[in-house]
């Protein structure tokens, strides 16, 4: 219905055939040149953000739908980056974890130098059922620990997921918080406690 309306709304006079997929019109090198021109004025310290690592390159090229072989290679590469805490418990302080999950600051060119980055989990996930300001780019995490029977292995898997989501799922939309040094080990532990502590608001009925 919406699609039909969109078709009807399209002006007939200017209807042209768009063939964006024609590789001759913008090679990867041409796109890179446009990117370089667009960020030519960026400070040197920021330039590593403009270039891509192999995982970013492949996920961009495949629009997050890599072939099975590519997905396997991404998961293998990203898994190799995992740095898990030495001790068996990965649960920190859920009260700190809640603050980190709420905090969307950090990493932006508008931030004051030295701003501590948050995890900004609420931008994408529902977590504590009582918090109504949550985004829907990711699945709900309400009751996450309870639904996983508070199992230590599940908490460790969550730690790995936050450290590097692509160690579990190639081309995930979720940031690689540990791998890209957005969050420290202690911050990730605190967030995992927010998901897994029985008395955390996330696990409130």
């Amino acid at each position: 219905m919406i699609f039909l309306a969109a078709l009807l709304a399209a002006p007939i006079a200017s209807a042209q055939t768009i063939s964006p997929a024609d590789p001759a019109t913008a090679s990867p090198a041409r796109v890179d040149a446009a990117i370089a021109a667009t960020f030519a004025g960026a400070a040197v310290a920021w330039m590593p953000r403009v270039t891509q690592d192999e995982t970013q390159r492949l996920c961009s090229l495949r629009r997050n739908e890599p072939t099975q072989a590519e997905a396997d290679s991404i998961v293998a590469r990203e898994s190799a980056t995992l740095v898990m805490p030495a001790e068996t418990t990965v649960l920190g302080n859920w009260r700190n974890g809640e603050k980190i999950a709420q905090n969307g600051q950090g990493g932006q060119f508008s931030d004051a130098p030295g701003t501590v980055s948050g995890g900004n989990c609420y931008a994408c996930h529902q977590m504590a059922p009582a918090e109504i300001s949550y985004g829907t780019l990711g699945p709900t995490l309400a009751g996450y620990g309870r639904l996983h029977d508070f199992k230590p292995e599940a908490a460790r898997a969550a730690y790995a997921k936050v450290y590097n989501p692509q160690s579990a799922f190639a081309c995930s939309s979720m940031p690689r918080f540990g791998h890209n040094k957005i969050l420290t080990e202690q911050q990730i532990k605190d967030i995992v406690a927010y998901l897994f502590a029985p008395d955390s608001p996330v696990n409130a009925p």
């Binding site: 891509q52 995982t55 961009s60 690689r176």
Partner: peptide, 14 residues
């Protein structure tokens, strides 16, 4: 180019 840039993942948040 615009379409490629739209799908181009980069920086610390990918």
């Amino acid at each position: 180019i615009g379409e490629a840039m739209f799908y181009r993942r980069s920086a610390i948040n990918d």
